[in-house]
Amino acid sequence: MTAVEILIYACLAIGVVFNSLGVIGLLRFPDVYTRMHATTKATTFGSIFTSLAVIVYGFFMFLSQADSQYLILAIHAFLAAACLAFTNAVSAHAIARAAHRSGIMPTPAVVDRLAEAKL
């Protein structure tokens, strides 16, 4: 087992572990906003790491076999990961805003300045 393989396995393991933490948080947390914390942060991070494994694999195979298909694979995986990170943050904000507008309050909450501001 070479160093590159260990790196790829490590990236895959980190990605799967954080994805599972996100899903466990989705099942365990008490209300919409805290669930959103778990899903946006953890699944974005996990998916970035599984894509990173693909990028490392593509670069390594490109360097060892000089086949440009693998470089294309790495570039496209990088684009997909970038799209994912960007769109997840924006859609989390959109859903949080919509949930608050539709009258779902954070229920355990020590303070709610948005409801006080009445926007």
């Binding site: 994805n19 899903v23 996990g46 599984t50 989390a92």
Partner: peptide, 13 residues
């Protein structure tokens, strides 16, 4: 919606 979003993210990964 957030559950569906999570499923989508996992499908992409």
């Amino acid at each position: 919606v957030i559950a569906l979003d999570t499923v989508n993210t996992l499908v992409i990964a």
